[in-house]
Simulated assay, not measured.
Amino acid sequence: MSANPSQVGQDVRLSVRASAAPQPVGAHWEFGDATTAEGSSTDHQWSAARTFQVTVTATFPDGRTKTRSYAQDVRPQRVTGTLTVHVIGPGRIVSTPAGINCSGTCSAQFDANTTVHLTAQDNPGAQFEEYADDCTGATPPDCDLVVPASGATVTGTFTQVSWTLTLKVQDPASGGGGGIVEVFDNDGAGPDHQCRQARCVDNFGVDETILLEPNALGLSISQFRGWQGACAGQGQQCHLTMDGNKTVTALYVRCPPGGCT
C-alpha cells in the first residue's frame, strides 16, 4: 500500500505480491466499506474516517488462492489555511509553530484554526513600528492570530532609526601612541567625544552629519597621515552623512625619537 494511515478522500495504491515465485495473476479486493475491486494492483479511497479491514484474495497461475487482511487507518482530511506575511523595511518576522521566517514576503500552510504566534525581529539600528491586516492592533513585537481555512494576511513595518559608525585608529593613545580622533555630532554643532582606542563603535541618527578630526594632543607622539574608508580623500576634517553603516580608519604613524616634523 502507498499510505497507511491515509486521509479521507486520499487515493491509496494497493498491490499484492508473493514473497517468492510464482507471482499472483489476479486478485479480488474487499475494502471494508462495501466496495470491491479486481486486479493485482488497484487504487482506492475511503470516504469516512475510521479503521477499515481490507481483505485481498490472490489467485496464482495454478489456480490456488491465498487470502490476507490488514487494517487501513483512515483519518479526517487535513484542512489547512495559508498565512501570508509581508515585511516592509529592515526586519524579519518569524512564527511559532515554524513556517514563517522571512524579511520580504512569504507564506506557509497551517492546520485550519491553528493559533500562530508571530514575533517581529528588527535589524540593528531599526525598530518595529506596527502590524497591519489580520494583526492590526497587536502589541509589538508579538501577534497571536487564528489562521482559518480561508487564510490570513499580516503586514509588519520596520523603520531604520540609526546607523553604525566603526572608527579604527592606528597607533591609538590607549596603546601608548598619539592616535586620538574627535567625533562631533551634527557636523560639529553638537557635543563631541574622543576615540582613543584602536576601535570605537557609535550609533547616529539616520542622515545625521558628523565631523571627525584628529586631536592635536597626540600629534607630538604620532603624525596624522589621512583617512581610509568612508573618509578617504578628505583633508584634516572629515564630514560624514550617516545614510548607512560606515567604517573609517584614521592613519597615524609614530614619530621618530626626535619628534615629528
Rank of each mutant, 00 (worst) to 15 (best):
S107W: 00
G91S: 08
Y70M: 08
C102F: 02
T84G: 06
D134P: 05
G125V: 01
T119I: 01
V74G: 04
A108M: 02
G99L: 03
T119Q: 11
T139N: 12
R92Q: 13
D73L: 13
P124Q: 01
T119K: 07
Q72R: 01
T115I: 08
P124F: 00
A132G: 15
P97Y: 08
S107V: 01
A112P: 04
N101E: 12
Y70E: 07
C106K: 09
L118Q: 05
G91W: 03
Q127N: 10
F128V: 05
Q72A: 10
C106E: 00
Q109P: 00
G89M: 11
D134R: 11
G125C: 02
V116E: 02
Q72F: 00
V74L: 04
V74Q: 05
V74R: 06
V94W: 04
R75S: 12
D73I: 11
G104V: 05
F128C: 09
T114G: 06
D73K: 12
T105N: 11
G81L: 10
T96G: 15
Q127R: 15
Q127H: 10
D73R: 13
H86Q: 13
T115N: 14
R78H: 09
E129M: 14
D142H: 14
D142A: 09
N123C: 00
A126D: 06
V87Q: 00
A132K: 15
T84D: 08
P90S: 06
L145E: 09
H86F: 07
R78Y: 05
A112E: 10
L83K: 13
N113T: 12
A132V: 07
C102E: 07
E130D: 14
T82R: 15
H117C: 00
A71Y: 06
A126V: 01
Q109T: 09
P140W: 11
G125Y: 04
E129W: 00
C135M: 10
P97I: 02
D111A: 11
G137V: 04
R92H: 12
C143T: 05
T136F: 03
I88A: 14
L118H: 05
G137S: 03
T80F: 08
C135G: 11
C106A: 06
A98L: 10
T80Y: 11
Q121A: 05
G137F: 01
P97S: 12
G104S: 15
T80A: 12
I88M: 09
T84C: 07
E130V: 14
A138L: 02
G81H: 12
S103A: 12
V116Q: 02
P141L: 08
S69D: 01
T136I: 05
I93Q: 03
A126K: 00
R92G: 02
F128M: 14
T80D: 11
D134N: 15
L83F: 11
A71R: 13
G104T: 14
D144P: 08
E130W: 12
L118D: 09
Y70T: 12
Q109A: 14
G99Q: 08
A112H: 08
S95C: 05
G137K: 03
C106D: 01
E129H: 02
G99A: 06
I100N: 04
T114V: 02
T115P: 09
P140G: 09
Y131T: 08
R75V: 10
H117S: 13
